[in-house]
Structures are given as structure tokens and as C-alpha cells.
């Protein structure tokens, strides 16, 4: 079979650059940034963060083909910063948000104790949880 390894969807090839910036020739202060081996998870989050930043005039992302594991972000700024720099700021901001959220989660989890058993009888069979072969047989109650 000639199917590519599926991990190639999210692992960079040897020597492959994770990011490629190409400046737009026709629009001022604009660039298209190709981010490899990433998908909507990162793309949409970055797009939203960029739009919230005042220096950004335009930000959009697309995954040109679902079988190609990369996405493009197009950014136009007002000229005070380069598109690449503003993308970096956006990422830094997001990391800040995430780490503060992480701390909050940690605190919340420490307050809560795990209560109760994992699942109360997920198959709805109350009879002997013991496995097979002990007279009463579960899984048969369906």
C-alpha cells in the first residue's frame, strides 16, 4: 500500500519548517503565513485572537484542502507592526490566557474531591460484576 503514514498529518518531516511567511506583494502590511502540520484547532484560535487586536485590519485563516495538513493565515496590519510580529504577539497572549486558565483549573480541581464511583453500572446489568463463567451471566440481559 502506498498510503502515507498517518502521523505525517501532525509530525513535521525532517528539516521541514513549521512556519513559512510570505509577504503580500499587492497589499501593504499584509502577509500570508503558512503553518504546517496544524489544523483548525490552532488556526481558528489564532484568527480570533488576531481580530481582537487593534493593530490588525484583517485576519483570516483557511485550510485549503482537508487532506493537506497545513493552514494559511492572512494578516493585514495598520503598519505599526509587521504581520509576523503581530502573530507572535497573538500567540504570546493566548499562551498567557491558557496558563492563567491552567492555574485556575488546578485550584478548582484541588477544591473538588472525586466523588462516587466512576460509573454506576454502565451496562444496566446489576448482576454479578464478576466476569464470565460464574453461573449468572451478564451481558445477556439485553
Amino acid at each position: 500500500m502506498n498510503a502515507p503514514n498517518r502521523y505525517e498529518l501532525f509530525v513535521l518531516d525532517e528539516g521541514e519548517k513549521p512556519v513559512e511567511v510570505s509577504e503580500d506583494t499587492k497589499i501593504p502590511n499584509a502577509a500570508t503565513i503558512k503553518i504546517l502540520k496544524q489544523d483548525h484547532t490552532l488556526g481558528n484560535m489564532i484568527r480570533a485572537q488576531l481580530l481582537a487586536m487593534p493593530q490588525v485590519l484583517f485576519a483570516g485563516y483557511k485550510v485549503p484542502h482537508p487532506l493537506h495538513p497545513y493552514f494559511l493565515v492572512k494578516i493585514q496590519t495598520d503598519g505599526t507592526v509587521t504581520p509576523a510580529a503581530v502573530l507572535e504577539q497573538a500567540c504570546t497572549k493566548l499562551i498567557g490566557t491558557l496558563s492563567s486558565l491552567e492555574a485556575k483549573f488546578k485550584r478548582e480541581f484541588s477544591f473538588k474531591d472525586v466523588e462516587g464511583p466512576a460509573v454506576e453500572d454502565p451496562y444496566g446489568t446489576n448482576a454479578s460484576g464478576t466476569a464470565w463463567g460464574t453461573g449468572t451471566r451478564d451481558y445477556m440481559d439485553f
Binding site: 509576523a84 507572535e88 500567540c91 491558557l98
Partner: peptide, 16 residues
């Protein structure tokens, strides 16, 4: 949350 941060950090690294 950690994985998301790693993704972003790698992007920053790639940009730099």
C-alpha cells in the same frame, strides 16, 4: 491546556 500552549510556543519558535 498544556498541549495548546505547546502548539503556540512552537509556532512562536518557528516564527523566530
Amino acid at each position: 491546556l498544556a498541549e495548546l500552549q505547546t502548539k503556540l510556543a512552537n509556532l512562536i519558535l518557528g516564527l523566530k
